[in-house]
Design a protein around this nucleic acid. Structure first.
Lengths: 112, 112
DNA sequence: ATCAAAGAGCAACCAATCGTTGCACATACC
DNA sequence: GGTATGTGCAACGATTGGTTGCTCTTTGAT
């Protein structure tokens, strides 16, 4: 069984800066490229690019308000991402358990 | 609270090709750059580079056997990765729940 | 009403990474 | 010995994450 996953989602969430951005957006309930860049060690333009990729995969949605563009996390899509994270984790966990079981069986057969 | 995570581990696991490689190594109990490249749509040299980064972060270990170099998954490090995946997932999940709770509270106060 | 300040967008550029091809070297086997 | 197979190294191109610099729009203060 393949653990191949929605690659777009993963690449969105695989970047540490984007994870921090999602974190900030969740914490503050939304933000603009400018407000985010104030809380991050990168420029507004870099933040804007990241928001672009997050938006392209539907992880955030935008609303214009005057001259500002406010980004918020899309709950449904974040839930999907969380589900996939835990799915991969669970799969690997299961394989580790199985390997561990095999190792123990070998150990037993050696001891017995 | 920051969800900042061991970035090396994440960048190792954030790449979809490397995830597939880990999968294959777990499934087969080990492999070489050549055997992996046969099961992947990329060249042996590309696989070798990926094995390099996985090795650098301790996700795999190598043993030389004749002219072959056999890679196996390091169980301890994979377990760490799994733990971090589920940690991020749990954090986001909690925030989603909290937001959902707030939304419901607002809904109630509107209705009440 | 005008004009400076602040937010956003666009383009060019740089460095790192993921892929490629091509070649040299080492080991296995006939 | 010679050929096939596994590995390693280097150069190259495309993409990506960051930068700087500029322009445009909106706000708001004088």
């Amino acid at each position: 069984m393949s653990v191949t996953i929605d690659d777009e989602l993963w690449s969105a969430v695989g970047d540490s800066t984007r994870r921090r951005m999602l974190d900030l957006l969740l914490n503050d309930g939304g933000g603009t490229a400018t407000t985010l860049s104030r809380q991050l060690p990168i420029t507004r333009q870099a933040v804007a690019k990241h928001l672009g990729v997050l938006h392209r995969v539907g992880m955030v949605h935008v609303t214009s308000l005057g001259r500002e563009r406010i980004y918020e996390v899309s709950q449904a899509q974040l839930a999907r991402a969380v589900a996939q994270l835990s799915s991969v984790g669970a799969t690997w966990d299961a394989r580790l358990q199985r390997i561990k079981g095999i190792a123990e069986a070998i150990q037993h057969s050696r001891e017995g």
